[in-house]
Amino acid sequence: MTRTHAEPDWVADLKLVAASQDAAAFARLFAHFAPRVKAFLMKSGADEAMAEECAQDVMATVWRKAALFDPSRASASTWIFTIARNRRIDMLRRQRRPEPEDLTWGPEAEPDQLDTLSLQQETRRLTQALETLPEKQRVLIERAYFGDLSHSEIAEATGLPLGTIKSRIRIALDRLRHAMSHESIPK
């Protein structure tokens, strides 16, 4: 495990919010993520008042949808990013955001513990890999995610080392599909 003791466990906090509407866990998530979401929205072109308002909306969605968070497929920051991105599309472009069909765990099934650990570990590796990218490529990727690149410009920002995290997510998806296909069969 490369995890340091100082690093907070956002997955555990999201589970606490989902399971028992834990206000203290939510306050920890809020202190870390709300200013980042606000900064993300401002970098994407929102003014401060709008970014503040939307960051609060995003965190309210985190509270309401915490039970849908699947830690075997995404880290907390990934999941919150997707909520913030959708809010940005809604806010700045006033468009609908078509989303893929949900794949969610049934009420009885739970994401596999090992899958969760490996995914969280892969995410940290990806973060480190991004940190060590050449400045030019890193800036290009940031611009892409802050909504600053057109689709044709984005082609130059692809080619990231995503192989390992992609295969972890694929394994989690296979397990989920398996669980879904057995859901209706009585044991």
Binding site: V37, F40, S77, T78, F81, L126, E142, L162
Partner: peptide, 14 residues
């Protein structure tokens, strides 16, 4: 979802 993870990492590092 791997690309979403890139977005998550960027958000976390902001």
């Amino acid at each position: 979802e791997a690309y979403d993870a890139v977005g998550g990492s960027l958000l976390d590092q902001l």
